[in-house]
């Protein structure tokens, strides 16, 4: 009886062992696949885009006949995208920072409210950007505003606001209670705690939040599809329409002319590079600022 059960045990063990080997293989394969796909994406964009990348592309605006494959570049879209992303990130920061401070200082003992706000933010983050774009466009028509840089900035700012707040919030959450309490016991008011202490403690979190939002703002196409318009000129005022990189890629790619298509691939290289630079930057900066934060 005892022997029999031992046999059974070892048989079961054997089977489990092979099963584990099998699944460990599958798991390793899955992780490798994910890394491989990233490599593949970057590789195929580079291979297609780099040959048609030229100095002219990034230093000139489209000239006559650009959309039939004649000369010119996409400087208008690059500058437009940078304006748009800076503007949107700035607005989202101005609105988002106080809200996240409010959640973590004034509402810090009303957990129910904070959780509800976080819930709403997560929901807002889940709303597809095309809905923001379409809704924004409707409002613009209603108010008689034309497609412009400003309209694009506002819609994009709304789009990235939840990311901005949640990312700063994640940083503020980690400020230890003891620090808050000692600040109060030294007689500081809530505003002083928020703007003088919490803010300084969370610089790495804020930097990450800003870069994350910037990356999202510069890459989004659906929200600006109707709201910024599209033009060959570099905008000189907020009420002018503007081109953006994602839309430049999107429109040029749907052209039947091969030269125009190739420019789209080159533009994709530029956009990808910007995103990669932001990603590296955020890693470097977080590490650098982390050194100056008091750890507990």
């Amino acid at each position: 009886m005892k022997k029999d059960s031992n046999k059974k045990t070892s048989f079961k063990k054997q089977r489990l062992k092979y099963e584990e080997y099998f699944f460990r293989g599958v798991m390793l394969l899955s992780s490798c696949l994910i890394a491989f796909i990233l490599g593949l994406i970057i590789y195929s964009i580079l291979v297609k885009g780099v040959p048609s990348l030229s100095w002219e592309m990034i230093t000139q605006t489209p000239k006559g006949g650009f959309y039939f494959g004649k000369e010119g570049g996409i400087l208008n879209a690059i500058i437009g995208s940078i304006y748009l992303a800076f503007g949107a990130t700035f607005i989202a920061f101005i609105i988002g920072l106080p809200i996240s401070l409010y959640m973590n200082v004034w509402l810090s003992h009303k957990e129910k409210w904070v959780n509800m706000l976080r819930f709403i933010l997560d929901l807002l983050w889940g709303i597809p950007s095309i809905v923001y774009g379409a809704f924004g466009f409707t409002i613009m028509i209603l108010l008689g505003i034309k497609a412009s840089l400003l309209a694009g900035i506002i819609v994009t700012a709304l789009l990235i606001l939840p990311i901005m707040i949640r990312a700063i919030d994640e940083g503020l959450k980690t400020v230890p209670k003891g620090l808050k309490e000692s600040s109060y016991s030294l007689g500081s008011t809530k505003s002083e705690l928020a703007f003088k202490i919490m803010l300084r403690q969370c610089i790495p979190g804020i930097v990450t939040a800003v870069l994350l939002s910037f990356g999202r703002a510069i890459g989004d196409a659906a929200a600006v599809l109707f709201t910024t318009g599209f033009t060959d000129n570099i905008p000189t005022a907020l009420n002018q329409p503007t081109a953006t990189l994602p839309l430049a890629i999107f429109f040029q790619l749907s052209s039947p002319i091969p030269e125009v298509k190739e420019r789209a691939y080159a533009a994709a290289v530029i956009l990808t590079s910007i995103i990669l630079i932001i990603s590296v930057l955020s890693r470097v900066l977080t590490q650098k600022y982390n050194k100056h934060t008091i750890k507990f």
Binding site: S5, N6, K8
Partner: peptide, 9 residues
């Protein structure tokens, strides 16, 4: 749980 691992089913 532990009994089942040991194979007593």
């Amino acid at each position: 749980y532990g009994l089942k691992i040991s194979g007593r089913v």
